[in-house]
Design a binder for these strands. Structure first.
Length: 300
DNA sequence: CTCTCCCGATCTAGGGAGTT
DNA sequence: AACTCCCTAGATCGGGAGAG
């Protein structure tokens, strides 16, 4: 086919796909070849096999319709003829009339069966729709129950409190009551959860400038910022472990999975805090200035 | 309304594996 | 050996949520 030729010229990558689709053994062409119309169909261009297949089907349907039409027309003609020619034989008339009635009965019965089938389909469809509505409402109910359960669970669960549960020591290790840094007992510091406590300890162990300019240890050579002092960071880790009685084996995992992210965010916030404050203050002062100038303008 | 904490998305650089 | 690609870890940014 001309179109396919131009297609292959235009899209080299599609060649394989085209070949497959034409040479596929499941192609309807093989079925078509065994049809009674095979001889007449030999004239059809072999390139356009798919089209010829549909063409056969169309032709067969057309022929059927044509035959039906012809039959109908002859019957109608016969009936008409019988009506218009009263001289014809009465017996012959009766035979023709009965033939006509027979055909109309056939058509009526076929219409009847078709309408029955349609009714059946309609009923089935209605049943299906009802079932679907029922199921969806059941699903909605189940989802509502699930939501309620989740709400109840989350309301009674303190995520931060239970998050460290897997890392708590279960071997009965004895933890010290005090961990001094200068004159401050680190274990005496307070915090709403382990994240809050960690931030407070870092604020005790390091100066504001250190927190603003450093990153978490161990740091990397390609980072511009230096890591926090390692000795004090060891103290920080000890404080965390003693305070929450965490297992020495699992502490590394606790630090990596739960704590580190909070700490990096904390350090970044330490850097941003002052900038934000300054920005807010400047905005405020600007607003104040504009207000004052407005007032001055009014009075002048 | 402000401040703080937190999270998802994105950026950056190193390191390993595979290819030329 | 040089290069590219992909993965990983950590830093950073933007913005939402909640407490006070």
């Amino acid at each position: 086919m001309l179109q396919s030729e131009t297609d292959t010229q235009n899209h080299d990558g599609d060649d394989e796909i085209d070949e497959v689709s034409v040479a596929a053994p499941t192609s309807p062409i093989s079925i078509n070849n065994s049809s009674p119309e095979k001889i007449s169909d030999e004239k059809v261009n072999s390139d356009d096999e798919l089209e010829s297949f549909f063409y056969h089907r169309k032709r067969r349907r057309k022929q059927k319709q044509y035959k039906l039409c012809k039959k109908k027309k002859t019957i109608e003609n016969e009936i008409l003829k019988n009506h218009l020619t009263p001289d014809s034989d009465d017996d012959v008339d009766q035979v023709d009339l009965s033939r006509g009635r027979c055909v109309t009965n056939e058509i009526e019965s076929s219409i009847h069966t078709n309408s029955n089938i349609l009714k059946g389909i309609n009923n089935k469809f209605n049943e299906f729709t009802q079932q679907l509505t029922l199921n969806s409402s059941k699903f909605d109910q189940q989802m509502n129950h699930l939501n309620t359960k989740i709400d109840r669970m989350t309301s009674t669960t303190d995520i931060n409190r239970f998050a460290i549960e897997p890392y708590v020591d279960k071997t009965g290790e004895k933890f010290p009551d005090k961990l001094m840094h200068d004159s401050t007992d680190l274990l005496g510091a307070l915090g709403t959860d382990y994240g809050d406590y960690a931030r407070n300890i870092l604020r005790i162990l390091y100066t504001k400038e250190e927190l603003q300019t450093s990153i978490l240890p161990p740091g990397r050579t390609h980072f511009s910022r230096k890591p926090l002092d390692k000795v004090r960071f060891k103290k920080f880790k000890d404080a965390m472990r003693y305070k929450f009685k965490l297992s020495s084996v699992n502490f590394g995992q606790f630090y990596r999975t739960l704590l580190r992210r909070k700490l990096t965010d904390f350090l970044i916030e330490e850097r941003r805090r002052d900038e934000l404050k300054l920005a807010r203050q400047s905005l405020k002062s600007q607003a104040k200035d504009t207000n004052q100038s407005d007032i001055d303008e009014i009075f002048n």
